[in-house]
Structures are given as C-alpha cells and as structure tokens.
Design a protein around this nucleic acid. Structure first.
Lengths: 155, 155
DNA sequence: TATGAAAGGTTGAACCC
DNA sequence: GGGTTCAACCTTTCATA
C-alpha cells in the first residue's frame, strides 16, 4: 500500500487518538486545530482506510484483576515462516500481543496472560506446536504506552 | 491497590474495549449483556478508578506514514533503579512504549520511532544518559494486538 | 449497585462550496 | 479537498429503588 503523507492536521489527530482514543471527540480535535468537525472525521476515515490507524485498544493492568502471569515469551521462527507463525500465534488463547522483529534470533516476541503455571505450560506447548521455538520466558512487571511526541502540534 | 475481582459483565466490557475502544458504545455492550447502558458506564468508571482500565490508545502503523525506523531497544537497568529509569525513558522524544521485565539482563524493553539514523542515535544517547545500558536494537517489522480471549463471554 | 429520564454533546450522511 | 445542516445516537447527570 502507498505511503500516506501526513500534514499537521493528520499528526494532531494521531497524537490525540494515541493519548485517548475513547474520550477524544472529533469536535475537540477540530476546535483545537480550527477546522470543522467533519474535516477531522474525513481525515480519520482516510487514515483508517490507508492502514495508518489500525485499531483502538483498551490498555489493561492484568495484575489488578488478579492475573499475575503477564509474560513475555521470546521465540524464534525460521525467517521465511515468521510472518505466518506470528499471525497464527495470535490465535492461541491467552496471547494478547505479537511483535515480529528483524533479528537473527528471538525474532517473534509474544505477550501472553496466564491464569496459573498450567495455563502458561499450555500456551508454551501450543506455540511450540505451531512451529515456534521458545527461547526465554519472563514476567512483565509494568508496561507503559505513550504518544509519539513528534506528532504533537504546538499551540 | 486492592485486586478488582471481575464478574462476567466486567470481563465482557474489557473484551469489548480491547477489541475496539473507540467505536464500541456502552449501549451496544449493554444490549449484548442485557443490562442498562448506565450500568455499563458505572462499571467502566469503576474499572478505571481501580486501575484495571489504564488507557485507550490508537494503534498506528508507522511504516505507512513513511517512518521506517520503528525499533525495539533492549536495555539493562540496575534492578533497584529499573522502575525509575523505565519511567524516565518514556520522556525521551521518539519513545512510544516501555516494558519492564523481571529478568537478569535486558530488563527494560523500549519501543521507539526514529525519522532517520541520526534520530535513532540521539534516542540511544539520551537513554544512555539517563542510565540505561543498551544491549541490542532491532527493527520491528510488524505488531499485532488482540483481546485477552478469556474475557470473552459466550452468547 | 442498578435503573430511567431529561438535557446536552457527538456522529454520520447528504449536500454545497 | 473543506464546510454546513440535521436526524439519530450517545453520554452525562441525577433522582429513585
């Protein structure tokens, strides 16, 4: 797909939605940028259609719900199969994020949530069954997401 | 903070908001779960107040905007300073996510977006200056987020 | 806690520039 | 491209059980 070039309005929209995708209304962004709300809506639609905005997700602190086993599983996939295996890994119950990395080893990073040790063993086994080699497994203690600061627009 | 125990309605809400935090209305969730919309709103407020729902973020495909350098920077922090350094790393311009990991080495994983090589050098230098040791740096090729399937409620 | 009703804000679609 | 209008929908607030 072709690159979507961003202007100041696009960047302001992306920054606002990274900050709070649920409560940030198109009217608020519009007012801040001095355009009509429908202009912001059209831009968002176009950013979605062009694959720039790919989703809006709630950030959850699993530990607060009693799920203590929020883990990072480092896996290795044969390079030609990496993309397919990364997609398949998403289907494993408990997996909440997958990142493909361009490196020699440990080229698929998987975030998974387990209810107990048995559950984690099951997740490990299923990842192994689809063809991923598990190299390491660690507890994620904390996770922060923050907007890309270069998208911010000066007032 | 005390653990927030989840019931079926809480889980359904979390699942729905993980799937689409922006377009999923409280009324839609309410209808699906056969409760009043205001009940769903009260629950969401309570999940936010208890630190279970910690944010709503847009997912962005940086490559589609011409930013080719979406990277994963693996760092090591002395354990007693890990939390503080992880928080400070968020302030570095270009950093979009930070994960603290409970492991011996490479215990802080940083996701950053660079405009070019010079920009990445600057990010590396700033992380080094706050006290993080950079162990490795890789290009992120693809990233997927998916709801925690165990929060799904059967129809 | 859950609900329902009134007021105000937001959205999407159609139309115009 | 951007703006205006308006009906439908959503959210906020608060009184009630």
């Amino acid at each position: 797909m072709a690159i979507h070039e961003l202007d100041d309005l696009d960047r302001a929209i992306l920054h606002a939605l990274q900050h709070d995708a649920r409560k940030m209304s198109t009217s608020t962004i519009a007012e801040r940028m001095d355009v009509a709300p429908s202009t912001v809506r059209t831009r968002i639609k176009s950013l979605e259609d062009d694959g720039v905005l790919t989703g809006y997700h709630a950030e959850i602190n699993y530990e607060q719900t009693g799920l203590q086993l929020h883990t990072l599983i480092l896996c290795t996939a044969p390079v030609p199969e990496r993309e397919r295996l990364a997609e398949q890994a998403q289907e494993v119950s408990g997996v909440v994020a997958v990142r493909e990395v361009m490196t020699g080893n440990e080229n698929v990073h998987i975030e998974a949530v387990g209810q107990d040790g048995d559950d984690l063993n099951r997740i490990g086994r299923e990842l192994d069954e689809i063809g991923l080699t598990i190299e390491d497994e660690d507890i994620i203690r904390n996770e922060y997401e923050t907007p890309y600061e270069r998208f911010a627009v000066q007032d």
